[in-house]
Every structure is written in C-alpha cells, then in structure tokens.
Design a protein around this nucleic acid. Structure first.
Lengths: 210, 210
DNA sequence: TCGATATGACTCTCGGGTAAGTTACTACGA
DNA sequence: TCGTAGTAACTTACCCGAGAGTCATATCGA
C-alpha cells in the first residue's frame, strides 16, 4: 500500500517529501484520535492507517503526545481563529453565540473529528497538549463570561459564583450543540446554524431576537 | 493497617468477613475511580489504597470491569431512585428540573465522586458498565424530552431534530450544573439548589416562576 | 558516496489476570 | 483436651499481552 508511484516525489528522496508525509500522517492521526480518543489510540494504529511504519512517526513527531499536540494545534488553531473572527464582528449576547456557533459549524464541516480531538477527555493534561487544550477553552470562557454577566446583571444577580456556574453551563451548551451536530453527519452547517437560532429563540422568546 | 482486632469476626474466618470487606473495597474503589477515572486507575492502585492485595479484589469482583460495575450500580441506583422520586412529585418544566437538581445535590452530598463514576467518559462501553451507564442516562433523557417538547411546542416548533438537539442540550445543562457543584466542595446542597433556581429564573424571566 | 526517507525487529514497562500456597479459625471425633 | 480436617480469608510470585519507544539497517535520488 506504499504506492511508490504516487506524487512527483521531491528532490533527493526515495519516497514522499517530509512535509508532504507529515501532512498526510497528521490528517490520518486527527481522524483516528478523533474517532477513538487519545487513550484508546495506539501509534501503531495510526501508522497502519497511514500506510507507513511506526518509527517514521517517531522520527517526525517524537512521541505519541507530540503527534497529538500537532493535531490539537491544528484543531484549536482553527477554532480559536474562527471564534476571534466572530468576536471581532461585535455582536453581543445571544446573537454572538449564534454567530459563533455558525462559524464553528462552517469551519468544522467535513472534518468534524477536529472537534473531538480538541475536546478529548482522555487527552494528557500535562505538557503541550494540556496547554493547547486550555487556550481555546479559556478564550471561549472569556467570551461566554461577558455575555453571561450581562444577562445576570439584567435580573439583578451579581453573585460571583452564580456568574461562574452560569459561564460553565453556557460553555457546555455551546459544546453540546457542536457535539450533537458532529453526531448527526447528514446536517449541513447552514441548516445547523438555523437550528441553533430557532432553539435560542424558543428559549428566550421573540423579544431577544435583537 | 489490616486491623485484625476489628469487629467481632464471623465464624470460621481469619480476618474480615467477606461482606464487610467487599463494602470497604467498594468505597475505596468508588473514590479512586471517581478521582482518576476508570482508564487511569489500576486494580493495584485500589488494592493499595484499601490496604489489601490485588487477588482479593479479583476473588470478590472477578475483574476490573466487575469492580467498576459494582461501583456504578451503587451510583446509578442512587441517582435513578432520586430522579424517580422527584418525577413522582408531579412538577413539570423548569420546576421539575430544579427539584431534580436539588434532589441530586442532596443525594450526592459528601460522596460527589459517585457523580464522576456515573459520568466517567473513560468507562468501558460494553458489558455491564455500559448498560448500567445507559440506564439512568436514558431515564434522565426521557424526562428532559418531555419538558423540552412542551417548551418547543409553545413556540410552534415541532421539528423532530430540534427536539432531539434541545434534549441533548438540556441533559448537558443538568450535568454541567452538577459537575460544577462537585468541583466546588464548599457549597452546601441547599445553597446550590437555590443557586439553580436563581439561574433558571434569570434565563426564563420571572414569568416562568411556576 | 552522502543524506534523506523508510522499515523490521527489537527492548522495556505497565497492568490485567492467575496459580499455588499460607494463615487462622471452627467443628468434631477419640 | 488434643489432634486433625475443613474452609474462608488472604498473599506472594508469577504469566502474558499490549503498546510506547529505539536501533541497526535498507533503499534510492543526486
């Protein structure tokens, strides 16, 4: 399956150029990590699915964690970029939430495993993976906290722990909508965006349509 | 630490009676599984913390999964019982959600690791654990689906997938409130119950106070 | 020949699971 | 009252497979 005849091999090498091979490995790894989770995936699995040998992965990525960190960097990078892009648009409250969701759906379209990679509960908490993981979580939380603060202030609630809890809840609402979408592969990003808008509308009533 | 002098040892035995020992092991196991998760916990860990040897665990529980299943049975049993108790009270909508949360906080007070055991994402999906895990989830979902259907119908939404997604979201809202509480050990169940009521109120407005 | 790509065949550790024995106590017959 | 047999509780020392990580080597273009 090594298909030696593939691609116009770059200079001075036998097979595929390093950069190209790395990209290929990363795509496979992302898919496998996303499907089975970090803990349940072995490096040999990834190698087999990529049609190469295990040592090559260690050559290029150093360790299982290193490989995962690269996948995670791609996933969290895409997500953060999209979140920032939407945030810069200046919408607030529910409108921003919907817009952010919409953007995330578009970014993840066709590669939903990236979401699972970025939210893998079996991922190592230490070192590079842990830090990367924390980064976009924190950014999401910041934005959520803002919107939630507004909402609670409206009802005269200024309890710090209330804000904290509500922020956590909003984060998981966001997450569960994306996860639900990832679990329903037939649904287009636009369709899911519309669905979110509808659901928020149903909860907050037509008044908050903004 | 085996405290040979403990309890009026039952007939014909050297140390602790089986039932008593099983109980002791289960408590330690629940705590350890809850803290570190199924995957990251080794049977030897549990044995060490319980002050006994590994084979004794295999004697009594058959396998690591068997041990976990016993812990899970306790956890899910308590949770289901509480959920059913509250459901039988007949409240609906937000009122029921708040009442259920309140009950769960009371049940989990002082043993919050049971929640983590019942929601361990690293638990095996097959066999006994998987089935037990599914049971109370399904029950929770049924109840949520009911309330959500009501809410969506109010706003003229009868899309089946909308209902599905919204139910999933409500389930994670419930979960994230409990998890948040578990992560804030200083907070009393009653206090947390009040907090939930406050937060639901802030979202749905005073109108839905019922 | 050099350097980059690539691999087969290892080593080593961890952890689930087991075989075989040891200890301490009771029951009971002589 | 003293063996001795029975049995439940409990442990030490092991097996074995999975999987992370490594090393010596092979292949091939320039």
């Amino acid at each position: 399956m090594t298909s030696t005849a593939a691609s116009g091999a770059r200079s001075g090498t036998k097979g595929v150029a390093r950069a190209e091979r790395e990209q290929q490995i990363l795509e496979v790894a992302g898919r496998v990590f996303g499907d089975r989770g970090f803990a349940a995936t072995s490096v040999a699995d990834v190698a087999r699915e990529a049609g190469i040998s295990k040592p090559l992965i260690y050559n290029y990525f150093g360790s299982k964690e290193g490989l995962y960190a690269h996948c995670l960097r791609e996933a969290s990078g895409l997500l953060i970029a999209e979140i920032e892009r939407t945030a810069a648009l200046g919408a607030v409250g529910v409108a921003r939430a919907v817009a952010t969701l919409d953007g995330v759906f578009r970014v993840l379209a066709g590669r939903t495993w990236l979401w699972r990679v970025a939210n893998d509960p079996t991922a190592p908490v230490a070192d590079a993976p842990g830090e990367l993981m924390g980064a976009y979580r924190r950014r999401l939380e910041e934005l959520a906290r803002e919107g939630v603060g507004e909402l609670l202030a409206l009802s005269g609630d200024d309890d710090a722990l209330d804000l904290d809890a509500m922020t956590a809840v909003c984060g998981t609402i966001f997450g569960s909508l994306v996860t639900w979408w990832c679990d329903h592969p037939g649904i287009a990003p636009e369709e899911m965006g519309a669905r979110c808008e509808r659901l928020f509308g149903a909860v907050f009533g037509p008044a908050l349509g903004r």
